[in-house]
C-alpha cells in the first residue's frame, strides 16, 4: 500500500472515531444540549475550508512567481475542496443554528462571510474551466486566487461591523476538556482528509493536463 492510500485510510478511520465519540460517547453539553455534537464536525470543517483557501492563495503566489503549472494544479485542487468544505460548513452551521438560535440564518458575520466565499471560489473554478489555454488559465486563476485572499478579511470585517450594529457577537463557548479533545481529534482527522483528497485530486489534475497537452487524437 502506498503512502497516499495509507493517509486516506487513516483519515477516514479518524473521522469515523471522531463521529462515534461525538455522537455516542460524549455526554450532551451542559449549556447547549445535544445539538453541541454538530460542532465537532462544523468547526473542523470550517478550519479545513480556511486552510484550503489559504493553500489556494499560497499556490497562486507560487505560480505567479515561478510560472510552473504544477502550482496551478495544486491551487485548483485545493479550491475545489475549499468550496466543498464551505458548503458543508454552511449546511452544518444552519443545522446547528436552527435549534440554537431558533432561526436558520442569523446573519452571523462568520456564516455570512463563508456564504460569500462560495460564489468567489465558484467564480474561480468557472473562469478556470472556461479558459482553454493552460497558461492563460493558470494565470487568470492565480490572479483571482490572490485577489480573493486580499478581499476576504476586509469582507469579514465589514460584515462584522454591519452586524454589530444590530446585535452583539455571540458569547464565547464553554471549553470542557473532553469536548476539547474530541474537537482536536476532529481537527487532525479533517486536516488529514484534506491532505489526502488534495494530493489525490492533484495527481488526477496532473494526469488530465498531460492528456490535454498530448492532444485529443492520442489514446
Amino acid at each position: 500500500m502506498n503512502k497516499l492510500t495509507m493517509l486516506g485510510w487513516v483519515s477516514i478511520a479518524l473521522i469515523a472515531v471522531g463521529s462515534v465519540l461525538g455522537l455516542a460517547v460524549l455526554p450532551a453539553d451542559a449549556l447547549q444540549g445535544e445539538v453541541q455534537r454538530l460542532l465537532y464536525v462544523h468547526v473542523p470543517v470550517a478550519w479545513v475550508m480556511m486552510l484550503a483557501f489559504f493553500v489556494v492563495f499560497l499556490m497562486s503566489i507560487l505560480y505567479l512567481v515561478q510560472r510552473q503549472l504544477k502550482w496551478d494544479l495544486l491551487a485548483v485542487s485545493a479550491a475545489e475542496l475549499g468550496v466543498l468544505a464551505a458548503v458543508l460548513t454552511l449546511i452544518l452551521g444552519t443545522l446547528w443554528g436552527r435549534p440554537t438560535w431558533g432561526i436558520w440564518w442569523a446573519w452571523d458575520p462568520r456564516v455570512t462571510t463563508t456564504a460569500l466565499l462560495v460564489p468567489i471560489y465558484t467564480g474561480y473554478l468557472v473562469v478556470r474551466s472556461m479558459t482553454e489555454d493552460p497558461d492563460r488559465r493558470a494565470r487568470w486563476a492565480a490572479v483571482i486566487g490572490l485577489i480573493a485572499f486580499v478581499q476576504v478579511p476586509i469582507v469579514y470585517l465589514s460584515v462584522f461591523w454591519w452586524r454589530s450594529l444590530h446585535q452583539p457577537p455571540s458569547s464565547p463557548q464553554s471549553m470542557w476538556s473532553a469536548y476539547g479533545l474530541v474537537m482536536l481529534l476532529g481537527f487532525v482527522a479533517y486536516t488529514l482528509a484534506f491532505a489526502y483528497l488534495w494530493l489525490r485530486r492533484y495527481r488526477l489534475a496532473a494526469t488530465e493536463l498531460e492528456l490535454e497537452l498530448s492532444g485529443p487524437e492520442e489514446g
Partner: peptide
C-alpha cells in the same frame, strides 16, 4: 428528538459528501 434529527442530518451529510 428534534435535535437528534438535526445532528443526524449534519453527520449524514458530511459522510455522504465525503
Amino acid at each position: 428528538n428534534d435535535h437528534w434529527l438535526f445532528i443526524g442530518a449534519g453527520y449524514g451529510i458530511t459522510w455522504a459528501s465525503l
